[in-house]
Nucleic acid binder design. Structure first.
Lengths: 338, 338
DNA sequence: GAAATCCGTCGACTCGTGTCTATTCAAATC
DNA sequence: GATTTGAATAGACACGAGTCGACGGATTTC
């Protein structure tokens, strides 16, 4: 692999001149530049990123930590990753994914402390997230997709589940519904303190109280099948609700299909509003889902952008940002049945 | 961040002594070592991986390239990743995931050529995979999970779909089935030349000819829903088969549920053998699935192990390895109906 | 017309570690 | 008892690129 000194010799200039020609941090005449670039091309010169990282103290690599659990990476999460990766590329960085078993993040910490990683993005944030404190203590730059219970000075980009749940319930109430359900994810996730899940549940109960309606919280696995099962239980209940707000887009598709199969007409008998569903999923269903979908790609991109700006000690216009998403009324929501 | 010279001063030794104490490549007396380690602890010294990478020419990082397409990372694929990550850690390496849009791998190449990546693992291999040739041409160490049509000197670890399909069909024939279906993934994947998909289809047809039975190849999306739809079509067909071999574990679960709902008894009326299904999935179903499941984690681990050995210029006992998996008979397969 | 300014370039040093050579001192060898 | 061996350590250099200070020459300034 050709190095800088080879190019310097071939182009008949000093090595530093080549650096300046590449970085543009000092003026280099046009002729010299063309000579240099020709030599680089001839020799197939690629600057050595490791040497650059050592000298400059920055590897231009960011790691997105993703906890490997039972299920892989969902279709939903992949949007965050892609948004983040694209934003990184645009700013001259690379985003890599760091698979982490359970909550073991020592490897990430080691690499970050030893200069191979400029910063870290965390997902699947819990209300009390020890990782966040740890990284802060160690001085490792971090941005969150999600937020803890006390975000203080954290850099984060997050879905505004509170606002979305509030909006969704208000919409059902506006349509005349007086008794609705709120479909969450698994009870385990809530118990484990996953921030978005817990917050949304609390808000749902709060809003129900404010608006003086009946609301029960349902828990359910994050799969279509689990939604089908849930539908079975739902249909057995005597005092059924007339609508549901869900943050569990996987389950709601099974639920919807199953209750329709049992004769429930949507939206005539029953309304559905789904939060955090992929728009493509939403229209793929029968009937298409009314949704409030925070833009996942934008959120991922915002987290990365803010992190990179903070690395460069630039001012971040807003280090803490929330996206609620807007209500898109489709076929699954309508006036409450008489 | 403390560096080696700080530790040297604190411990009262030369810098090189510290390197030797850490690497063990030269003997250091016990007293000196304890002094050094104490100083390292006091100063919270972490060797700078970037400097080490520059000097030694190796970053100890491997990238697993994963193409980001419409669907995220499936539960099946995650096992390869985890197996690979664990094997890497055990050998003192880090495995990172490199998300790649479409087939754009320039970023990976750049980082590999510039020393930030010691090697690359490729998945989702096609029969004619330009990436493999490209990496070989550029001299970037590569191992494959999967294999091309001409693996030649490639390092790879792969499922033996040929053997598994052959075994599955033979089993159904042994049980008396004369007319069976073969359920593949989407037609698009086959057309795009994904190696495993194409190979398995060809083998299925070949074996059917050899054993003189009727076999039709079905294509179907890689989702439970797609399997349900497929079941609808299947039930309409007049001359139905009595069994199916599937490499599409997502679809087969929907298919199984749907035909049972329509009154088909498994395995009395119809037998199912599923290849490449996760054992957990297999027993979670009703009835539990007879399977042939190549060990994904082992395959991922083998690819990484072979790659690392080749990096160290060690002999690899077998750079090309296949796993067929064994037939595990559960409740979904039985004698053909009279 | 001398001084100040600016452009373009060069050489030297630096980032933090791995490793080679040299040196010292003690034990072992014939 | 002189020489060889070996352990334990020190010192020097290299990996490849980024950046600062300096310098010659051209241009501008008063």
């Amino acid at each position: 692999m050709a190095k800088r000194s080879d190019v310097a010799r071939a182009a008949g200039v000093a090595e530093s001149t080549i650096s300046y020609a590449l970085s543009g941090s000092r003026p280099i005449s046009a002729e010299t530049k063309t000579r240099i670039f020709k030599a680089m091309k001839d020799l197939d010169y690629k600057p050595n990123a490791v040497a650059a990282a050592l000298r400059s103290g920055s590897s231009k690599m960011l790691a997105l930590v993703f906890g490997v659990t039972d299920h892989g990476i969902s279709q939903g999460d992949i949007s965050y990753v892609l948004g983040a990766a694209d934003a990184a590329r645009e700013l001259g960085y690379h985003l890599i994914l760091w698979p982490v078993r359970d909550r073991d993040i020592d490897g990430v910490i080691a690499q970050a402390q030893s200069g191979l990683l400029d910063g870290v993005i965390l997902m699947e944030i819990r209300l009390e997230d020890t990782r966040v404190k740890l990284f802060r203590k160690l001085g490792i730059p971090v941005a969150l997709i999600g937020r803890t219970s006390k975000p203080e000075k954290d850099i984060y980009a997050d879905r505004d589940f509170d606002g979305a749940v509030r909006l969704a319930i208000a919409e059902l109430v506006r349509l005349g519904h007086k008794k609705i359900d709120y479909l969450s994810t698994t009870l385990k996730q809530a118990e484990d303190g996953f921030a978005a899940v817990v917050r949304a549940e609390n808000v749902a109960l709060e809003v129900a109280k404010e608006l003086k309606i009946k609301l029960s919280v349902l828990h359910c696995g994050i799969t279509t099948e689990a939604g089908v099962e849930l539908a079975g239980e739902y249909l057995k209940m005597s005092t059924a609700s007339t609508g549901i707000v869900s943050i569990n887009s996987e389950a709601i598709s099974g639920f919807s299909r199953a209750i329709q199969k049992a004769g429930v007409k949507i939206p005539k008998d029953f309304s559905i509003i789904c939060i955090d569903s992929n728009p493509l999923e939403a229209v793929a269903q029968e009937p298409s889902l009314t949704t409030i979908s925070p833009p996942a790609a934008d959120i991922g991109a915002a987290a990365v952008t803010a992190l990179i700006k903070s690395l460069a000690h630039l001012d971040i216009e807003d280090p803490q940002k929330l996206w609620r998403g807007t209500l898109v009324t489709r076929e699954s929501s309508g006036p409450a049945p008489k």
